[in-house]
Amino acid sequence: MLEGKVKWFNSEKGFGFIEVEGQDDVFVHFSAIQGEGFKTLEEGQAVSFEIVEGNRGPQAANVTKEA
């Protein structure tokens, strides 16, 4: 699992990017966010995740919000 911070997330469109120190930003789709209820992320929020190869390159999977 990697750790990063949410760079930005558009809850209307359901996607955004996660910043990872020393690496390129990683695309995140709302469907990759773990948990119940409305799936969104806040700018600057700490998250842990895995990287998988998507249709358009690397993207986040199994995203969990850090306490």
Results as ranks from 00 to 15, higher is better:
67 A>E: 05
3 E>G: 12
5 K>W: 05
64 T>I: 05
39 K>I: 07
22 G>S: 08
19 E>H: 09
28 V>T: 04
29 H>T: 04
13 K>D: 04
14 G>T: 02
6 V>H: 00
10 N>M: 10
27 F>D: 00
25 D>Q: 06
38 F>N: 07
61 A>N: 12
7 K>D: 02
32 A>Y: 05
31 S>N: 10
1 M>A: 08
55 N>K: 08
42 E>L: 11
4 G>R: 01
36 E>V: 15
9 F>T: 02
56 R>F: 10
67 A>D: 14
36 E>N: 08
6 V>M: 03
6 V>S: 02
62 N>E: 05
23 Q>C: 06
33 I>F: 06
59 Q>R: 09
45 Q>D: 12
59 Q>N: 07
57 G>K: 07
67 A>M: 06
50 E>Q: 15
35 G>T: 11
47 V>E: 00
37 G>T: 10
44 G>C: 05
4 G>T: 01
35 G>A: 12
45 Q>K: 07
36 E>R: 10
12 E>G: 13
33 I>N: 01
31 S>W: 09
16 G>Y: 01
61 A>P: 01
27 F>I: 03
67 A>P: 12
53 E>S: 13
61 A>G: 10
3 E>H: 15
34 Q>L: 08
32 A>I: 02
12 E>Q: 13
26 V>G: 00
35 G>C: 04
6 V>R: 00
20 V>C: 05
12 E>W: 11
15 F>E: 02
19 E>N: 12
42 E>I: 11
14 G>H: 04
45 Q>F: 07
23 Q>K: 12
65 K>L: 11
55 N>P: 10
37 G>F: 06
5 K>H: 06
7 K>R: 10
15 F>D: 01
6 V>N: 01
9 F>R: 01
15 F>N: 03
66 E>H: 11
53 E>N: 10
6 V>L: 04
44 G>M: 07
62 N>A: 07
53 E>V: 13
46 A>E: 06
33 I>A: 02
66 E>V: 11
2 L>V: 10
35 G>N: 12
7 K>Q: 04
61 A>V: 06
25 D>N: 13
54 G>S: 15
47 V>N: 00
59 Q>H: 12
32 A>M: 05
40 T>Q: 11
25 D>W: 07
14 G>M: 03
50 E>F: 15
12 E>L: 10
34 Q>H: 12
